[in-house]
Design a protein around this nucleic acid. Structure first.
Lengths: 193, 193
DNA sequence: CTTGTTCGGGAGCGATCGCTCCCTATCTCG
DNA sequence: CGAGATAGGGAGCGATCGCTCCCGAACAAG
């Protein structure tokens, strides 16, 4: 019965993610969003509610894409070490030209823990990454890649903390070589040089 | 000749730092700043220029205080390991009640590398911390605390990346125990358990 | 085709933004 | 004390903020 919308929801949210990543939540106006998404104010508000709701929508969509990429990268058939390295380096090289950082990390730093729905999504994303790392380390132990005993819990926390730090430093414009040096030092500490 | 100002510059900037840490740059209005600093708009603008200049002033003052605290903590007479641990834990426990994160890390995540004067200050602060860590590790090697060979450059990058990640996770509201687990795993990797 | 519903477009709401001006008060110095 | 200069206070500037309303257009169902 209704007239169908003339814009693609998925593309529009992708554009919103892009703007929020670059400019942050408070640095992005609804006019910025409308311009990037190709929507006038009324269409934007009818389709997505308000700015905050669209932001949550962007967080969810962003994390879905992130999780898919994580799954593809970490489910390869070669060694856990190389899969983990590929994943860690991917975190700081997914965008070729611009370093926009991670929307979840940027959001955590900008908004902190004040806003509940935001905090929940940030925690879910962070804890999901810790679990991915823990699963990889367990797999490395099971497959005999790591010979000596390893504190999987401690290393999962440390490696994820490293991921968060890498994405901040990447966004700050620090050179890739220094960030990969950190990555390789961590991997050397687990697997040996 | 002129009438002296009735507010304390140092205290006022400290208040500005507090607000910027909590709310970020774009999330803070000049009225927020004026209210926190006890200044009406005209006094604020005459004394500090505009919002951006006050922000740079806050960044500089913040880093000065941070560097002083770092010097005090890391120049103790006991082992390098315990000094380094105290410093790392201090990063996530300096505020008792609220987790406002690090102004430099928050700024890096919110504003990225777009604004030059901001980026320069963030880089100076980051690189200063990397140097502090490198000096501590060199000292540990020199004093025989670390027996096996260690890649000081790689570990400096990794430990500072960890610091950045810790402060993001702290601001996001993640529990202290998980963050200290990351810290201790890193220290164990260098010094042994 | 008619009807019903949502669409895209645009004007514009009240509130707040960063910031400036003007006025008087208060201080230092000759 | 008089002169000079900057202080604090407050009104308010134009611009932009998040958001709403109204409009004719476009499409699905009967």
């Amino acid at each position: 019965m209704p007239r169908p919308r003339q814009f693609d929801d998925h593309d529009a949210v992708r554009k919103a993610i892009e703007v929020f990543r670059r400019q942050g939540y408070h640095g992005t106006s609804t006019r910025d969003l409308g311009a990037a998404m190709g929507l006038n104010p009324s269409s934007l508000y009818r389709a997505y509610g308000d700015k905050h709701a669209l932001f949550l929508r962007a967080l969810d969509s962003y994390q879905t894409v992130q999780d898919e990429a994580t799954g593809e990268i970490t489910s390869s058939s070669d060694s856990v070490r190389s899969a983990l390295r590929r994943w860690l380096v991917h975190m700081i090289t997914e965008e070729q030209d611009h370093a926009w950082g991670c929307l979840m990390v940027n959001t955590a730093a900008e908004l902190g823990a004040e806003d509940s729905p935001t905090r929940e999504r940030v925690h879910a994303a962070f804890d999901g990454n810790v679990t991915v790392i823990a699963d990889l380390l367990e797999k490395a132990v099971a497959e005999g890649e790591i010979t000596r005993e390893i504190d999987v819990h401690g290393w999962s926390e440390l490696l994820f903390t490293t991921v968060a730090g890498l994405r901040v430093r990447d966004r700050a414009g620090q050179p890739l070589e220094r960030l990969t040096a950190a990555v390789d030092t961590a991997l050397d500490a687990i697997w040996g040089r």
